[in-house]
Write a protein that binds this DNA or RNA. Sequence first.
DNA 1: GCCAACGTTGGC
DNA 2: GCCAACGTTGGC
Length: 150
Amino acid sequence: MPKHLKPARNYWLVKSEPDVYSFADLLRDKQTFWDGVRNYQARNNLLAMRCGDAVLCYHSNIDKAVMGIAEVVRTAYPDPTVEPEEAKGNWVCVDICAVQALTPVTLAMIKAEPRLANIALIKQSRLSVLPLTPEEYTLLCALGGVKNAR
DNA sequence: GCCAACGTTGGC
DNA sequence: GCCAACGTTGGC
């Protein structure tokens, strides 16, 4: 396909607590549904995901590091874990599949990297689904030992 | 365990 | 519509 016709690809970062669901779990499962988001801004980011978008998986709390690369394989659909009293939020989930693990890129490494000074992970530290620029994505992959990440 | 950041709720 | 109180997240 000619380069100028290549569909736009977006880049995202999602957080999880590793003792709840880790990137190792995703590698084992191959694919999962990314559920449980109950924040409107994070939900809107889920709604903006397209098949083929790249997703970096970050572990909060214990590891505080980007652990691996995943890819969106199904766009937003109703989150099956929504409780009746949460229904008005129109909460959604997406399906992602594992692509490959990274050498963990720690939060300390990210904070030490001037080119990542404006990353949403730091600017909006409580948001669990956030956008990345292509440059941030490529750099995080490189820091994790993956050059020329797709 | 503490606290900063920040989203949500509810009284007015 | 404002804002105080409260709850949650996540880093330290």
